[in-house]
C-alpha cells in the first residue's frame, strides 16, 4: 500500500487544489515570491501574509533520478520510475513523478502537470497525485534552464 500524504492545517489547501486538478501556490504579500510546499511564512522575507494562487502547471526539469529498484514493496510494480524536481513557471519547486517523452529526460526540458487519483480502496484514503508529463517527440523541446 502506498503511503498517503499527511495533510495538516498548513498544507490542506494544496491537497484540495490537487483534487481540483490545480497546483496552488502561496504568493508572499510582502515580497511577491511564490512558494511551495506550503509554509506558514515566507522563507525569504519571513512575512506570514500570503495569497493562494493557481499555477499554470507548466515547469522545467531542474533535476531527476531514475529508480531501478524499489525501496519498499508498494513501489515494486513501478520500477523503473523517474522522480523529478520541477521548477514551476511562477516560482517554487515540486517533487513529482515524471512520465512520457522519448529518450532520457533532460535538465531544462519543459513539462506540464497532470493529475491522478490514488488510494480510495476500502481501507485507504483517496488523494490526488500531481505528476509531470514530458512533451511528445516533435513537440516543445524546451530551452535549457
Amino acid at each position: 500500500m502506498r503511503p498517503e500524504p499527511t495533510i495538516d492545517l498548513d498544507n490542506a489547501f494544496y491537497w484540495e487544489g490537487l483534487r481540483d486538478a490545480e497546483i496552488r501556490l502561496q504568493r508572499c504579500e510582502a515580497c511577491g515570491r511564490r512558494r511551495t510546499p506550503p509554509l506558514p511564512a515566507c522563507p525569504d522575507c519571513g512575512d506570514p501574509r500570503a495569497t493562494i494562487e493557481p499555477a499554470s502547471g507548466r515547469g522545467r526539469i531542474y533535476s531527476f533520478v531514475v529508480a531501478h529498484r524499489a525501496f519498499s514493496p508498494a513501489f515494486e510494480a513501478d520500477v523503473p520510475y523517474t522522480v523529478a524536481v520541477v521548477e514551476l513557471e511562477e516560482g517554487g519547486r515540486m517533487l513529482a513523478r515524471l512520465e512520457g517523452g522519448d529518450g532520457p529526460p533532460r535538465i531544462g526540458e519543459a513539462v506540464r502537470a497532470a493529475f491522478r487519483l490514488r488510494g480510495g480502496d476500502a481501507d485507504e484514503t483517496e488523494w490526488t497525485e500531481a505528476f509531470f508529463v514530458r512533451a511528445p517527440a516533435g513537440g516543445d523541446e524546451g530551452e535549457p534552464g
Binding site: 502506498r2 503511503p3 498517503e4 533535476s63 533520478v65 529508480a67 525501496f71 522522480v83 535538465i107
Partner: peptide, 22 residues
C-alpha cells in the same frame, strides 16, 4: 515526508542522486 513518500521518493540514495545529477 508528505511530498516524498507517497510517490516513492523514499531513500537517501535518491536525494543525493537528485543533487548529483544537477
Amino acid at each position: 515526508g508528505a511530498y516524498r513518500y507517497p510517490i516513492g521518493y523514499e531513500s537517501y540514495l535518491m536525494y543525493i542522486a537528485m543533487w548529483a545529477r544537477r
